[in-house]
Amino acid sequence: MSTAPEQTPAVSVVGVSKKWAAVSAFTDVSFDVPQGEVVALLGPSGAGKSTLLRCVNHLETISAGRIYVHGDLIGYRLGDQALYELSDAEISRQRQKIGMVFQHFNLFKHMTALQNVMSGPVHVLQRPKAQATALAMDLLDKVGLKAKADAYPSELSGGQQQRVAIARALAMQPRVLLLDEPTSALDPELAQEVVETIRKLAEEGQTMLIATHDMGIARDVADRVIFMEGGRIAEDARSKDFFTAPKSDRAR
């Protein structure tokens, strides 16, 4: 999707590194995601894809660099001498506009599908129940699960759970949606229904950053592929170029 060059990027990762005491996840990673673009984050297991996504909404702290979402510096305040970590309340406010979908769905097990989708608007945004219910039903309809509104996660298939999880993230009307291997825990047929849901979002112009091993997503849904390896970006290309003529050996 083409975007005006002067537009603020949806996500801007600038020279970001993440390391723990002994392990380094990635070093000096930089890229911009323009609004409306769908980026597939590829790479072997352990390449740092999940960690990078978790840094974007500050579920993980970063060791160096800066991350911006729609121009907001995530997780820190720029001081004279350093970046100072924000308070829990301030970071929570930033996260409201950053949706996240997990490999293992992570639905709230004590809530029905509907309550899961309503949880953000009701508890985070303090929206009235009636309004949140209407929005949640629309979203469940959109992911094809209106009939399952009153089902608990334990009564849903993996694919259904993942679609509820996507609806839950969408209920916050996120500026960007981070998806960490959304289909990896699913059988092929179930994965397909989740891919279709993601494709629909892509067509609506939802900005997405998707860590995945699913070539269907990377080739057919994503506009662009970022290939990570050994804690660095090995290749950053348009999706069709990446699949017709990969430059890095490993991407092959």
Binding site: R54, F108, V124, R168
Partner: peptide, 13 residues
Amino acid sequence: GQRAAATALGMTQ
């Protein structure tokens, strides 16, 4: 995972 999901939605601790 559920705690991460709730945090990612924007809930405070």
